[in-house]
Design a protein around this nucleic acid. Structure first.
Length: 102
DNA sequence: AGGCTGACAAACT
DNA sequence: GAGTTTGCCAGCC
């Protein structure tokens, strides 16, 4: 599988995360059949245009935190999640309740 | 080719 | 819980 195909799979998986739910990088990597390629998911998101239709904000790290340095983009993600009904408690979401299970 | 980097993760202390 | 260390793997010099 080439780089393009991986990206497409990643997009596909992220696009299928239902509203009100979140998924971890590792989880996405696994569902996209990339195995331990969690970092590739991150690299992929890094390149997304600001107005992408992809629900990139539903992707968080294994600790349930936004894996982004404080900044405008961090704030956008937090806001989108909130709008999605996902509440951040101490900068952290409860994977227990909100993690997507396909 | 070889070394460095990182929107990660799991296992440690 | 908060830091560190270690394993990981595609991109980019």
């Amino acid at each position: 599988m080439d780089a393009v195909e991986r990206r497409e799979r990643i997009w596909q998986v992220i696009a299928s995360i239902p509203p009100g739910k979140v998924a971890t990088y590792g989880q996405i990597a696994e569902l996209a059949d990339i195995g331990r390629g969690a970092r590739q998911v991150g690299r992929c998101l890094r390149e997304l245009p600001a107005g992408s239709s992809l629900p990139w904000f539903r992707v968080i790290n294994s600790q349930g935190r936004i894996s982004l340095p404080q900044g405008p983009s961090f704030d956008r993600q937090a806001a989108m999640l909130a709008a999605d009904g996902v509440t951040l408690v101490n900068g952290r979401v409860s994977l227990k309740e909100y993690q997507w299970s396909p």
